[in-house]
């Protein structure tokens, strides 16, 4: 699904990504871990076509990123730190707007269905500005998946959520996985990474430091490997 080869991103003469090589298969749920400033979010932004790579090759679904941006944008659902939602719009209005931008049919029906799925049916017509962080994040994930993308890019999706919201978010990710969606999730939350991901990639100083499969939901393994790579503790 994703092929990244020798990916380099330079900004203001500073190397952020220093030659990332990564292959992610269809249907995989991959967590990207790493310290602050390692280049995790930059990698996600490159994949989301928000920033152009300095050099290197990125292919998504066999399509080269530079020349097929429009096709690639249709394949992706991106959830960054911010919600990307219009505050004075209701969840329904936000989702219908983005649904129409992605050209989906019956955008309103789909929006109502998704709002119900994330447990906010009661607030369907309330402006988003009155919502708590958890409620906003639930609508934000609904926005990211409204066009049923085969690739989900999530940037720290669990940050600031309560247990209920985490559980809803994980259920959405797992139900998307069951449909064959590939998920790439940048996170600092090892527990969530261990719970829902089947592969962990650790990035340090703009390079892939470790890449391993999760045999079981072994939180200890993730912590140990992370400490070994990032903090140099064995």
């Amino acid at each position: 699904m994703i092929e990244i080869s020798k990916l380099i991103k330079k900004a203001d003469n500073k190397l952020i990504l220093r030659g990332i090589d990564l292959k992610i298969g269809k249907g995989e749920t991959v967590a990207i871990l790493g310290p602050n400033g390692a280049g995790k979010s930059t990698l996600l932004k490159v994949l989301a076509t928000l920033i152009k790579p300095t050099s290197g090759l990125v292919k998504i679904n066999g399509l080269e990123l530079r020349n097929n941006q429009m096709k690639i944008k249709k394949l992706q659902g991106y959830l960054p730190h911010s919600s990307l939602l219009y505050e004075h719009y209701s969840p329904l209005e936000n989702l219908v707007f983005f649904g129409n931008l992605y050209g989906i049919k019956n955008a309103e029906e789909k929006a109502v269905e998704l709002v119900k799925e994330v447990g906010l049916s009661f607030f369907l017509n309330e402006p988003v500005k009155n919502f708590s962080r958890g409620m906003i994040q639930r609508i934000a994930i609904a926005r990211a998946i409204i066009h049923e993308p085969p690739l989900l890019l999530l940037d720290e999706p669990h940050t600031g959520l309560d247990q209920g919201a985490i559980s809803i978010l994980n259920n959405v990710i797992l139900s998307m996985k069951a449909k064959g969606t590939t998920t790439l999730m940048v996170t600092h939350d090892f527990k969530q990474a261990a719970d829902i991901c089947d592969r962990i990639v650790i990035i340090k100083n703009g390079k892939v430091a470790d890449d391993f499969r999760m045999e079981e939901k072994a939180l200890d393994t993730v912590s140990e490997k992370y400490q070994l790579q990032v903090e140099g503790v064995s």
Partner: peptide, 14 residues
């Protein structure tokens, strides 16, 4: 506000 411009940039349009 809420980086909604990014929402427009990632949508499939020029």
């Amino acid at each position: 506000r809420n980086d909604t411009m990014q929402g427009l940039m990632i949508a499939p349009m020029d």
